[in-house]
Simulated assay, not measured.
Amino acid sequence: MRIRSLLLTTLVAQPAFAETFDRPIPQAQSATAETWFALACVLLLASLAAVQWLVNHR
């Protein structure tokens, strides 16, 4: 019984010996991604302005 408990304790403790977590390094955005993001921002602002115009004219 002692051998089983020793073996079980050893198996449960194995994750403690795992290697440390290395944080991923963020990659820079490409020029294409920045262009699409800028276009999406402009379109969002235009749609918000259109909604406000529609609400004010009702």
Rank of each mutant, 00 (worst) to 15 (best):
P15D: 11
L54E: 04
Q52G: 00
R58F: 14
A33M: 10
Q29H: 11
L7H: 09
A18G: 12
R58K: 11
L54R: 15
F37W: 06
Q14T: 10
T35G: 04
T20A: 06
P15C: 12
Q14L: 14
R23D: 13
A28M: 08
A33Y: 05
Q27C: 00
N56W: 14
T20V: 03
F17R: 12
T10V: 05
C41Y: 03
L54S: 08
L48G: 05
A40R: 04
L7E: 12
F17I: 06
R23M: 09
L43S: 13
R2D: 12
L39Q: 15
I25C: 00
C41W: 06
S5M: 14
Q14V: 10
A46T: 01
L43I: 03
T32I: 01
V55K: 07
L6W: 11
A46C: 01
L48P: 01
F17L: 15
W36F: 10
P26I: 03
T20S: 02
H57I: 07
T9E: 14
T9G: 15
E19W: 11
A40Q: 07
I3G: 08
A50W: 02
Q14M: 15
H57T: 13
N56E: 10
L45F: 09
I25L: 08
S30H: 06
L43V: 04
T20L: 02
S5T: 13
P26M: 09
Q52T: 06
L48T: 01
S5Y: 12
A50P: 02
S47I: 04
R4M: 02
W36R: 06
A18Q: 07
A28Y: 03
R2S: 12
D22R: 15
A40L: 06
A49T: 09
L6D: 12
E34V: 03
M1V: 11
L43R: 08
S30Y: 01
V42D: 02
Q27E: 13
A18T: 14
Q27A: 07
